[in-house]
C-alpha cells in the first residue's frame, strides 16, 4: 500500500498497548494543535469569502478539543467559520476522531480474541483501514445522496433571496453535504450551521431526516456484531445489542411520554397537546428522541432573531 510506504509505517508491526496508546495520544494532540492554529488564523488564511474574524483563544481551544474528542460541542455558531476552517479544521476531525474511537474498539476486540500475544494491533494501520475502507467510501455515497436531496455543496459564500415580505436576505452556503455525511456517520454532530440538522440546508426532507437518524446508529450498532465476529461467537454481540436496545427503548418511552404529556402551565392557558417547544415542527415530537447528538448551543448573542428553531434531535 502506497499510503503506508509514504508514511513509513509497517502495517504488520504489532504494537504493545503502551506504544499503541502513546501513538494515539500523540496523533490526537498534534491534530488538536493544528485545528487550534487554523481556527486562530482563519482571518488570514484563504477561502474566507465573508472575511470572518478568527476565534478567540479560549473559543478556539474549546472547539479544537471538542472536535478532537468526537464531542463536537459547539460554543461557536457554524456561520462564523469560513469554508476553509469548516473543511480543514473540522471535517478532518469528523473522520479522524471517529476512526480513533473505532480503532480503540478494535484494539479491545483483539485483546479478547488473541491468545498470549504481546501486541494489540497497529494504531496507524487501524486508522488507515477505518478511514479508507469504511468512513470515506460510505461518506462519499452519502454526500452524493444529500446533494441529490438538495443539500448545498459549494464554495460560494452565500445566496441572496427575496423573502415573502419583499426584503432581501442573505443565506449562508458552503461545502455542507460533505460535512453533513460524516457528521452523522461518525457520531460527530458539529453542524455546518448553528441550527444543525434543523436547518433545511443540512436536512431538507423527511427522507434525509430518516437517513440521518439511522446513520447515527449504523456503525455503533454494526460494531456489536463485529465484536461477536471477532471473538468467534456472534451471540455475544447480539446479547450486547439486546441490552443496548432495552435501555434505548426504556429511555424513548419515558421521554416520549413526558413530552407528549406536555406542559401543565401551557395547557392551563388553553394550549392543548404535547410540548412542541424546541421541537423541529417539520418532524414533530417523535423524531427528536431517536438521535442523541449535538444540537447547537445557544447562539453567542441569544437575542439574534434568526434561524434557531432548535433541533433537539440534531446531529
Amino acid at each position: 500500500m502506497g499510503f503506508y510506504r509514504l508514511a513509513g509505517v509497517d502495517p504488520n508491526a504489532d504494537q504493545g498497548w503502551r506504544r499503541y496508546a502513546l501513538h494515539m495520544l500523540a496523533f490526537n494532540t498534534g491534530l488538536l494543535l493544528f485545528t487550534y492554529a487554523v481556527l486562530r488564523l482563519q482571518d488570514v488564511l484563504p477561502l474566507n469569502p465573508r472575511a470572518l474574524a478568527a476565534q478567540s483563544p479560549d473559543l478556539a481551544f474549546n472547539t479544537a478539543v471538542s472536535f478532537t474528542t468526537n464531542t463536537n460541542w459547539q460554543s461557536y455558531s457554524g456561520e462564523t467559520l469560513s469554508p476553509l476552517a469548516q473543511m480543514l479544521a473540522l471535517t478532518i476531525h469528523n473522520f479522524l476522531s471517529a476512526a480513533t474511537g473505532i480503532a480503540i474498539a478494535f484494539a479491545l476486540f483483539r485483546g479478547f480474541a488473541r491468545r498470549q500475544a504481546t501486541g494489540i494491533g497497529n494504531f496507524w494501520a487501524d486508522m488507515t483501514r477505518v478511514t479508507l475502507y469504511l468512513l470515506l467510501p460510505v461518506s462519499i455515497v452519502y454526500a452524493l445522496f444529500l446533494i441529490a436531496s438538495g443539500v448545498p455543496q459549494t464554495l460560494a459564500a452565500s445566496v441572496d433571496v427575496t423573502t415573502l415580505e419583499g426584503a432581501t436576505q442573505s443565506l449562508g452556503l458552503g461545502p455542507v453535504a460533505s460535512q453533513e455525511a460524516i457528521k452523522m456517520l461518525g457520531t460527530n454532530g458539529g453542524g455546518f450551521f448553528n441550527a444543525n440538522s434543523a436547518h433545511p440546508f443540512e436536512n431538507p426532507s423527511a427522507l434525509t431526516n430518516l437517513v440521518q437518524m439511522l446513520s447515527i446508529f449504523v456503525i455503533g450498532v454494526g460494531l456489536t456484531w463485529t465484536f461477536g465476529k471477532a471473538v468467534g461467537d456472534t451471540r455475544q454481540g447480539w446479547a450486547i445489542l439486546a441490552a443496548m436496545a432495552l435501555l434505548f427503548l426504556a429511555g424513548v418511552t419515558v421521554a416520549y411520554a413526558a413530552e407528549a404529556a406536555g406542559n401543565p402551565h401551557l395547557q392551563a392557558l388553553g394550549l392543548a397537546g404535547g410540548n412542541v417547544e424546541g421541537k423541529e415542527v417539520r418532524f414533530g415530537i417523535a423524531a427528536w428522541r431517536c438521535s442523541r447528538r449535538s444540537p447547537p448551543p445557544p447562539p453567542a448573542a441569544p437575542s439574534t432573531p434568526c434561524t434557531t428553531v432548535s433541533p433537539p434531535w440534531a446531529a
Binding site: N70, A98, T100, G101, I102, A103, I104, A105, F106, L185, G186, T187, F217, I219, G220, V221, L223, T224, F227, I240, M244, L247, F248, G251
Partner: peptide
Amino acid sequence: IVGGVGAGI
C-alpha cells in the same frame, strides 16, 4: 447505548 462510534462498544 450505541453511543459514539467505537466509544459506545
